[in-house]
């Protein structure tokens, strides 16, 4: 299992899945604390019309235009949610529900109306991604990791998601204190003169960036699951924010690796012949982790219900 075939067929998807999971879990921690966990859900729904429009404009399924389209759609969605919430004085959950279902419906309609028979673009692909197809044919073994020529043939999703993760991580590191302050106590952050609203918009934009890049590689199930499940499970493990982040990264990695391995090799171990959906399995594993944390996590109970 650990030979040349593994490096060529399994290593790139596992790496991409892990990096995508971490890139989503990082901002997910703060979205969770701000009770905005469902932003990830909303963003990954509205990405569909974005990529369909990008396809209609450019006529190809090239990655950058699609990511741009997806990013623009995410931005439009956030603006629409905010506008509807304010103009209509509607609670955020309902405003979100109005916007993301509408935009997703528009995406599906656009997709059905346009001729995409020649390209790999459909709703299923958008939902589950195609992690399994991100293979590295040039690899001949572990040595290929030092072979520049072979490295150049890595699936382009890998450097893209790695770069995205780097950006997300660096921005979050640099803005750590203001982010924590404004998440914990917005009023206090304001009295310090922190640009509270800009920080909020920045966080959502960062989440959108992670979602769009991860979506391109792994589909929206993983995006939604990784925004929420690893941070949620981590929250039940500790009362320290820094520790929570590390737990969430560990859980995200575990979900991605274990999920991929179970989907790819599990059926073989059981005597089957076909691999299962890796995206679905990664989400499922993250759910099992959350279930275990909810049952046994040391800080699972609400603070008021624990002995002092």
């Amino acid at each position: 299992m650990m030979g040349a075939e593994f490096v060529a067929l399994s290593l790139p998807p596992i790496l991409i899945g892990t990096l995508a999971a971490i890139a989503c879990a990082l901002p997910g921690n703060f979205l969770l604390l701000r009770r905005q966990a469902l932003i990830g859900d909303a963003i990954s729904h509205v990405v569909l019309p974005g990529i369909v429009l990008a396809f209609l404009v450019t006529g190809t399924v090239a990655a950058w235009p699609m990511m741009l389209g997806a990013g623009a759609a995410a931005l439009v969605a956030v603006l629409m949610i905010e506008t509807i919430r304010r103009l209509g004085r509607i609670e955020p959950g309902a405003a979100m529900g109005v916007v993301f279902t509408t935009m997703f419906a528009a995406g599906v309609l656009l997709l059905e109306q346009s001729d995409t028979s020649g390209v790999h673009l459909d709703v299923q692909h958008a939902l589950y991604g195609n992690l399994e197809s991100l293979i590295w044919l040039e690899a001949t073994g572990w040595d290929s990791l030092w072979d520049v020529q072979a490295l150049a043939a890595l699936p382009p999703e890998l450097p893209r998601i790695a770069l995205t993760l780097l950006v997300v991580a660096v921005v979050m590191l640099l803005s750590w204190r203001p982010l924590v302050l404004s998440t914990f106590d917005e009023g206090f952050a304001r009295t310090l003169g922190l640009p509270v609203r800009a920080i909020g918009v920045g966080l959502v934009s960062l989440a959108a960036l992670a979602a769009v890049a991860a979506f391109d590689a792994v589909g929206s199930i993983i995006v939604i699951a990784m925004f929420i499940c690893p941070p949620a499970a981590a929250r039940l493990m500790t009362d320290r924010l820094g520790t929570q982040i590390w737990w969430s990264l560990g859980f995200a990695t575990l979900s991605a690796v274990l999920g991929y391995v179970l989907a790819g090799y599990g059926p073989l171990w059981l005597g089957g012949t076909h691999a299962l959906s890796a995206a679905g399995m990664i989400a499922s594993v993250s759910g099992v982790i959350l279930l275990l944390a909810a049952l046994f996590g040391p800080c699972r109970a609400p603070a008021g219900q624990r002995p002092g």
Binding site: L32, A37, A225, S286, A294, A301
Partner: peptide, 19 residues
Amino acid sequence: TRLGEDAAIGAVLSVFFGA
């Protein structure tokens, strides 16, 4: 648990769908 309803919704949604 100490999780908010939004987190619970998102978790159930994504995990059940994934399964």
